[in-house]
Design a protein around this nucleic acid. Structure first.
Length: 157
DNA sequence: GCCAACGTTGGC
DNA sequence: GCCAACGTTGGC
C-alpha cells in the first residue's frame, strides 16, 4: 500500500459547513466530526497527515467540488458521539470504547469556480469515480491519482 | 418535495 | 442468518 500522497473526497452540506466556513475557522482548520458510517470511518482511519482532500458541497446548488483541504491530524475519538444533546449523539459509542472517530483538516484553497456534477460527468477520466456512481452516498471516499489530476486540471482551466 | 439507493435495526 | 421496515442521503 502507498504510504503517502493519498487523495480523498469529503462531503459537506454548505448550509451546515461550507468551504468558506473552513477558510474562516481558527487556523483555517476544523475537526471532521459527525461521521456515522463505518465505511467512511474506516477511510478516515486510513488517512495520514498531508493527504489531500477534495471538498465537496452536497445538497447544494449546484452540487460541486469546490476546493482542497489537507489532513493535519489522524483519527481520534469523535466526542460529539458522547454528547446526548448533540445531533450526532450515539449511545453505542462511549469514551472508554469509542466507535466513531474524526480527523482534522485544514483549508488549502478554494477553486475559482465550483466544479459541478454535470461538468464532472462529462470527463472521461472520472467515468468510474465513486462520487459519480448512481446512488453513491459515502461521505468520505478515496480518490484515485488520475481522478485527482483530472479535477485539478479542470479547476485551473 | 419527491423518491431511489443505501445502511441499520430488530423480529423471527 | 434472513429480510422487512425504517431512517437517511442527496440529486433532481
Amino acid at each position: 500500500m502507498k504510504t503517502s500522497g493519498r487523495y480523498w473526497l469529503m462531503k459537506s452540506e454548505p448550509s451546515a459547513f461550507s468551504i468558506d466556513d473552513l477558510a474562516a475557522s481558527p487556523g483555517q482548520r476544523t475537526c471532521w466530526d459527525g461521521v456515522r458510517n463505518y465505511q467512511a470511518r474506516n477511510y478516515m482511519r486510513a488517512m495520514q497527515v498531508g493527504d489531500q482532500v477534495l471538498f465537496y458541497h452536497s445538497n447544494a446548488d449546484p452540487p460541486a467540488v469546490v476546493g482542497i483541504a489537507e489532513v493535519v491530524r489522524t483519527t481520534y475519538p469523535d466526542d460529539s458521539a458522547f454528547d446526548k444533546k448533540d445531533k450526532h449523539y450515539d449511545p453505542k459509542s462511549h469514551p472508554s470504547k469509542p466507535v466513531w472517530e474524526m480527523v482534522d483538516i485544514k483549508f488549502v484553497r478554494k477553486f475559482l469556480r465550483p466544479l459541478g456534477l454535470d461538468l464532472l460527468r462529462k470527463q472521461a477520466p472520472l467515468k468510474r469515480m465513486e462520487l459519480l456512481r448512481k446512488g453513491s452516498r459515502l461521505s468520505v471516499q478515496p480518490v484515485k491519482p488520475d481522478e485527482w489530476k483530472a479535477i485539478l486540471k479542470l479547476a485551473d482551466e
